[in-house]
Design a binder for these strands. Sequence first.
DNA 1: AAACCCATTAGAACCAAGTACTAGTAGTAA
DNA 2: TTACTACTAGTACTTGGTTCTAATGGGTTT
Lengths: 191, 191
Amino acid sequence: MDKADRRASLQELLKEHPFLTDEELADHFGVSIQTIRLDRSVLQIPDVRERTRALAEHNYALVRAIGSGEIVGELMTLDLGRNATSVLTTDAAMAFSKTRLVRSHYIFAQADSLALAVIDSDRAITGLSNAKFKRPVTAGERLLARAEVLRSRAPNESVVLVETTVGEDKVFRGKFVVNTETQKRDVEAVV
Amino acid sequence: MDKADRRASLQELLKEHPFLTDEELADHFGVSIQTIRLDRSVLQIPDVRERTRALAEHNYALVRAIGSGEIVGELMTLDLGRNATSVLTTDAAMAFSKTRLVRSHYIFAQADSLALAVIDSDRAITGLSNAKFKRPVTAGERLLARAEVLRSRAPNESVVLVETTVGEDKVFRGKFVVNTETQKRDVEAVV
DNA sequence: AAACCCATTAGAACCAAGTACTAGTAGTAA
DNA sequence: TTACTACTAGTACTTGGTTCTAATGGGTTT
């Protein structure tokens, strides 16, 4: 394996495993640490600590928004069983890099979370959804979602309407049928 | 501010800003670095590098799945304009902690991405969706999504059917109307 | 007042994973 | 032989720590 191959391979490897130290990389390629450092400096690849830090920082806000909270976006108001609102500030990480248009499932995620939040119940689950994305959202725009419980048909089934706006523009409208409890059997069957 | 207050406040602060070094913390609280280190050791809080590393590692897989790739899940097969399949292995981070049931928007995100991928076109955007979540998915289950283009009505509008299964079970079925190009005006209006 | 306790601070030695730089070797090409 | 390239070795220095020992300095108790 010559220099060019190694460097190409190094870049690939770090894309997959960004937490490898120079020492580990040196072992992996059977060269010295100095060689790895030379490679990194030529390829303009920062050190592990910087890579780790950048990754963590980059992902931090995003994950907080979409992954870790029960709500995607920030819950603003909540009248349990009636209505609720939440705000989600979109950013570049949520968008296609070429067009800067926010992936629709972020918009959906905000609406879906809000629909569940307004129903509450730890066991609330989306059973059905009907969504219209009215106009594309550009990274940076602030999404205001408003959820309203339309009716609670069966004791364990509610219909929630969610409308999302950016300023004056309606960007999303979705109806969610949220189930509670009923899943018990299914859940147990799964587990 | 006494010791107890400072330590409580330290924990809160690090929850919000996990990338602060001891030096920055010392400045913030107007005490010496040693005091901060004592506090950290008593509170069992690891150092910045470890905090950063843990955060990055924890978020990495998750963000790769939902945020950074154009596809949520891994694209398995793709016959452009006809059909495609992708796999998403769910994990605890995608689920409600109490019930271990995967949040429905992850399932939606996989389907939505796949619907866009099968249509291709960098400007593809979801215009409408119609989704049914047939049974809850438990963290750890492997979601196989299959997308099929039903018809391309207008030259810039396609209808895609996505069905997601876990083993033999159907867990999701959704229809997506995907638009291409048409958004141009809106997009420019937004920017 | 003297003795004591506690939180805080200082200082030294050490570590990991680097940067930046200098210098050397081994192999190949002109 | 000389020259060039790739690689390696070694030193001094940096950041952000750890671990340990040893002060300070204020408040409380005796």
